[in-house]
Design a protein around this nucleic acid. Sequence first.
DNA 1: CAATCAATGCTAACAGTGTCAACATGTGTG
DNA 2: CACACATGTTGACACTGTTAGCATTGATTG
Lengths: 196, 196
Amino acid sequence: MLPVLPVNAPYHHGDLRAAALQMGMERLANQEQPDLGLRALARDLGVSATALYRHFPNKDALLDALALEGLNRLGQHQAQAAVQAGGGHDGFAEVGITYVTWAVENPALLRLIYNRIGLVDLTADDPTAMGEAFHQLRAGIAAMMPDEMSKDQRAAAALHAWSLVHGLAMLILDGQVEYDPAMVRKVVMMMDFKDN
Amino acid sequence: MLPVLPVNAPYHHGDLRAAALQMGMERLANQEQPDLGLRALARDLGVSATALYRHFPNKDALLDALALEGLNRLGQHQAQAAVQAGGGHDGFAEVGITYVTWAVENPALLRLIYNRIGLVDLTADDPTAMGEAFHQLRAGIAAMMPDEMSKDQRAAAALHAWSLVHGLAMLILDGQVEYDPAMVRKVVMMMDFKDN
DNA sequence: CAATCAATGCTAACAGTGTCAACATGTGTG
DNA sequence: CACACATGTTGACACTGTTAGCATTGATTG
């Protein structure tokens, strides 16, 4: 939380952009409702509030950068879980459990990701970095669906699975459901794709 | 959006509390990202900003009141859907589809509900009105689970179903998934409880 | 090496917010 | 009628994001 001294200091006060992002990520990791205000961040960085405007056009851009970093971390985490878990129903369920677990361990970050993604036009011609990272996450989910399904079935099944784990994660994050790893496993394993 | 003249005017300027809530609900119904600021509301109500403090201790209390109203509407809507749909797998799926549809039609309100509920202590001795309304929604879901299940199974199945529809609704609201009623039906109908 | 220039940072200010204290006004009751 | 209380207003404070203008540092170039 104290001012961070970056290793690389190419400019007269250091790599402020990286320092700001690092401090933001720390807050997202350590606090349920982190204060990501520009002034508050700048204060704890030992810098004037307006200095951040040399690195981000506005507050939203800073939040987007944090969300992108989080999205990349989530994507990596999920991809790694996918190779470890292998295929089949149980393997896929394992990946879903991983998603919920990550959400529980990074509540503020996950919330930021989805808050920010909601504002991005995912159908734009020039896809943003965030749209790109998000697309990869989606593709990873779809790739795990059973081979014998038709294309439509796969799409529906992927959405079904994603909705389930995302909804469960959100309910836990919002405090409606007490977090219980055994319960999470039970609920996710319950998933089966009725062929109708 | 213009100043609202209440029918009952028991005090010298009218029932400001009801007028504020009504205006808030209108904004939640008509705008994706409604401005629920105290000053903005008061301005459009034709009243000074601090007047609202005679009816709500602070801004959060106003938001809570709006969320409670939304929660009650959602609960009523779901209860009605439950009696219409009847029992069984298809009946339950119908109720789930109703949930998603309501969410799509009331995006800002649903978001407010879940944002506010996250801040409520649902295990408190003196349950708030919101905790109460929320508990009823939960009970309604659990009551629809198949009779032949054990208590634990029923709890898991209820959470499974709730997670699915809530997650699907959230993904649509956040813009990751295009809203398509047929797709929603397909995804929800896919639900089946594997007995493991 | 010295001069220039762009990158980076600072101060001051503006509009907006939630909130409090003090004052004003209308309403109902003894 | 007079009093008390509920309600509404004004003014102020601390906070926020943001912009304009000025200062400083580091890198580049003659």
